[in-house]
């Protein structure tokens, strides 16, 4: 027993060392980063940024953008988000806590487009400007929303897919979930464009894998089994796309199925460079983070901001993946 205790202590120390030795980014990541800036203490205006998550690379890039803006515009921000993108209640709690700190403004990416409205009305009553980012709210309270036009971006992915498969045949879609704005819009943008513009293309399957690469892999494999003549697969976010790449590889269909992805990440970028994946839609997560804080600062100063800030999207493939202008958009 004593030996086991010693072994365990050694291991925990090892784990701690491993944690510390990790290249510590300016912010140590995670929810705790949010607690270190006390509200309204310094002279700088305080803006809490409440995101949909913090664990995915995409959110880490948004965080970087908002931190850059805070530095440039001389404001204090905190960045936090719930552990998973289904925890609507946790996010509401975070919003409540943020409001209690009497911030100068709030940046908010809603997990649920309606659930936060009562709190946002409170913010409005207290004259705290709210700026939406990534996912909008069904309300006119936010003074601005900085987001990707996901419908248009997914439609662009559909155009690329149609072109690559000769405008005829079966294609399939896998997305992260059927309830969030981004999940809904990307699936709709892709399937609507196929239906409207390419009558000979059939979307045979729309499935949801929670952005879990392993679950998504099993889904993709089953869909390929059921549709041996499948010509294309669209993965609507980073985790889903990992499943597409893995599933196509495991069924030995690389080369036979055209793959198109969304967002970035090392695995996807490597596959595009190697030519196994045709290309992907990239949003501008750093830009989303930067522009929401920028709009919040403008609103604090009483300047006018445009209601919709389209942060844009870009198609990238083998030809432009290493181009200089793409680099800020493509996180690892």
């Amino acid at each position: 027993m004593r030996k086991i205790v010693v072994l365990f202590s050694v291991l925990m120390v090892l784990a701690l060392v491993a944690g510390c030795a990790a290249p510590a980014a300016p912010a140590t990541g995670g929810q705790t980063a949010a607690t270190q800036a006390p509200a309204a203490s310094g002279a700088k205006p305080y803006i809490p940024v409440i995101s949909k998550g913090f664990q995915h690379q995409f959110w880490q890039a948004v965080k970087m953008g908002s931190e850059n803006a805070a530095k440039d515009l001389n404001v204090d921000i905190t960045f936090e988000g719930p552990g998973s993108e289904s925890e609507v209640d946790k996010q509401i709690e975070m919003l409540q806590t943020a409001l209690d700190k009497k911030p100068a403004a709030i940046c908010f990416a809603a997990l649920d487009s309606k659930a936060a409205i009562p709190l946002l009305e409170k913010a409005k009553a207290a004259n705290i400007p709210v700026v939406g980012f990534d996912s909008g709210v069904d309300s006119d309270i936010p003074v601005a929303t900085a987001a990707t036009d996901n419908l248009a971006a997914a439609a662009a992915a559909a155009d690329k897919m149609a072109e690559a498969i000769g405008k005829a045949g079966k294609v399939a879609v896998i997305a992260h979930d059927q309830t969030s704005r981004t999940g809904i819009d990307r699936v709709k943008g892709f399937t609507d464009r196929m239906k409207a513009t390419y009558p000979d293309i059939e979307v045979v399957s729309v499935e949801y894998g929670a952005g879990d690469p392993l679950k998504s892999t099993e889904i993709v494999k089953a869909v390929i089994q059921a549709n041996p003549d499948l010509k294309g697969y669209f993965g609507a976010n980073e985790g889903s796309m990992k499943g597409v790449m893995n599933g196509v590889k495991e069924t030995g269909k690389e080369g036979a199925i055209v793959m198109i992805g969304y967002d970035a990440g090392k695995q996807l970028k490597d596959a595009i460079r190697a030519g196994t994946v045709l290309g992907a839609i990239s949003q501008d997560p750093v830009g989303i983070g930067y522009k929401c804080v920028e709009a919040a600062v403008k609103a604090i100063k009483g300047e006018t901001v445009s209601k919709v800030i389209d942060t844009g999207y870009k198609w990238y493939d083998k030809s432009n993946i290493d181009a200089a202008e793409m680099q800020p958009l493509l996180y690892d």
């Binding site: 784990a15 944690g19 990790a22 980014a25 990541g29 995670g30 664990q55 880490q60 090392k266 695995q267």
Partner: peptide, 17 residues
């Protein structure tokens, strides 16, 4: 375990490629 995974990995996937 979930928290330590995020801390040790610095909230990033680690690849074996």
């Amino acid at each position: 375990a979930r928290g330590l995974s995020l801390v040790i990995s610095n909230v990033k996937p680690i690849y074996f490629d």
